[in-house]
Design a protein around this nucleic acid. Structure first.
Lengths: 170, 170
DNA sequence: GATCTTATGTCAGCCTTGTTGACTTTCCAA
DNA sequence: TTGGAAAGTCAACAAGGCTGACATAAGATC
């Protein structure tokens, strides 16, 4: 194999040499990296008595202010009972506001309060700082590859949500 | 900025344009991708009445046969009580064997039984299949970048474990 | 208007998997 | 021989998943 593995890529039933070894390294990299990914927010959340579930809710409400419960459910992939427990504490604690829909009064539209926005910012500042450091250490081409592989790894259903969110951004 | 963001990379306090928007996309990509990453094993584990904790134990015992409980503890980052509960069920169910250390009889060395190896293979086949598909879809340069960013994202302590495992491989 | 469906919330109970704290046993090493 | 490390165990607790059942409000349809 003169040109090395990189030579064989395109075709579906490609000759690309992906040994179990290489794949296993990727799997372990995902495992260890995800721990780093959540480590900083986890530390902050602990101070507030919240968990990752609260962080996820804050993140996506911040991301899509006015989103409905049902929409959040689809993105987070949990049951309404699970989400509701988390949402209730955030509402009671004054971090999230739930407004009855104007067009459809069955819907609740979710917004962050000032306090909610402040915590969300604190959490995402920490998470972005690590992501920024990793991006800078790896360089922009690595970042592009990183994003491509992650996107290809998603369940199609979730990839749809991801792209919708992605496109609504900057 | 004529050449685009890619032009600025190297320097530590780089001018590399990493907007909060871009970083947020990376964060969301990690979130959604990790769900895909665990989806296939999760489905299999459910059939057996096991959870992700069992998968992790099986994975790393397969990876380093004869590893001690303490070593596993450091890699998994949980308490011995947590690990022990999982390990006990795997031992009782005949998937893992625990052998008293020869040199140090306090230590227990962990091995997969044939049944344990079979389940581990089933789980990692599923997980590798998705990883392989993602790698092929993204291409080898993307894979290299993927790995670089993940590694940069790890906690230093865990990166050490990762590298040790990595180098012990093929 | 009556009925079907959807969106949401809530109660109760269960499971996995994490935690802390206390305690025991084994056994290496100083 | 004694201190401490490695391992195991018990108890209790919490977060955050889950299911099932049920209530309410309100849009949609017949």
């Amino acid at each position: 194999m003169p040109e090395g593995a990189h030579a064989h890529v395109q075709s579906g039933e490609s000759l690309l040499f992906l040994t179990d070894e290489q794949l296993r390294k990727g799997i372990e990299a995902m495992f260890f990296a995800y721990r780093g990914f959540t480590a900083d927010p986890d530390r902050i959340l602990e101070e507030y008595g919240y968990g990752r579930a609260h962080h996820r809710a804050l993140h996506f409400i911040h991301r899509s202010p006015g989103t409905t419960v049902n929409n959040l459910l689809a993105i987070l992939g949990v049951t309404k009972q699970s989400l509701n427990r988390v949402l209730r504490t955030l509402i009671v604690d004054g971090l999230v506001e739930s407004r009855v829909g104007k067009r459809d009064k069955r819907e609740r539209h979710l917004f962050l309060t000032e306090a909610g926005d402040a915590l969300e910012r604190k959490l995402s500042d920490a998470q972005r700082a690590r992501m920024r450091a990793a991006y800078r250490a790896a360089g922009p081409e690595a970042v592009a590859g990183f994003r491509q592989v992650l996107e290809a790894m998603m369940e199609p259903e979730l990839r749809r949500h991801f792209k919708r969110l992605k496109d609504s951004g900057s």
